[in-house]
Amino acid sequence: MTSLPVVPDAGDIDALREAARRIRVEVVRTINTVRVGHMGGSLSEADVLAALYFGAMRIRPDQPHWPERDRFTLSKGHASVGLYATLALRGFFPVEELLTFDQADTRLQGHPDMTRLPGLDMSTGSLGMGISAAVGMALAARLAGSPSRTFTLLGDGECQEGSVWEAAMVASRYRLNRLVAIVDHNKLQQFGWQGTGHEDRLPPEEPGELVSKWSAFGWRVLEIDGHDMAQIADALASATSQTDDRPVAIIANTIKGKGLSFAEGQYLWHVKIPTPAEFAQAMAELGEPVDAEAAR
């Protein structure tokens, strides 16, 4: 397996795209093998995670506890497979270990468990909490005089939790401009509101609602296409430039199940497991050569 290049200044957009593709391949492979895991939200977040871990974030995989590292909390902790795939590909642990996901004695618990896996900055899984911890980390960095920046990734459904807005309020009150919250705005939650037919579910928020809410809470808001790597990299560069004293929210417009034509925009793919035919189709669509697949 060839190791993926790291792109500190996010200059090499193609390299970041390849990292995102590899993350998706490992997400699908892992879920297909262990037969559990949240597919839809792990695929929608893949590009943002690639841009963070292979680009924007200052981290040292061989020193996961380096005090001045940038911090990350996966507030939408159910999409753990996406984060595990990212950390593995970035060199925090062997890619083969992904197949232990959710099995007895694994370091890769169903939801991120910081007591088990170095590289996880916070335990999450109950929605609406990871952002509070991120606010705490940003406050701590400021008090300690550390250059560390803090990133957190939320779901758009998760933004229904009141505690998200308690955190947003405190972050802007303390002008935490080294804090970046990214919302994976994939327009679906787990079940949500019924649309016109039973199979059709409405998005968690009305169009534009997230931008106006985060702005109203005193955050600097950037809205981007969360699958356009150049836009993601630019937004992260802007978000970490402290252009003013506000914390930054990036509303990343994404597609749940991104990359698998049969899963995209389908609410049931929140936790669905692929059939053998779907798995083969997924690998083909992700451009993962079948030979390489067989050779593993």
Binding site: G157, E158, Q160, E161, G162, F191, G192, W193, H270
Partner: peptide, 30 residues
């Protein structure tokens, strides 16, 4: 429902009585 009707099978209720199925979103305290 707290956005888990597919898992708790409250979806059965939604199909039968959609007007009395009230989706509260991911916001359990409320």
């Amino acid at each position: 429902d707290g956005d888990l009707g597919t898992s708790t099978r409250a979806e059965i209720f939604e199909r039968a009585h959609p007007e009395r199925f009230l989706q509260m979103g991911i916001a359990e305290q409320n």
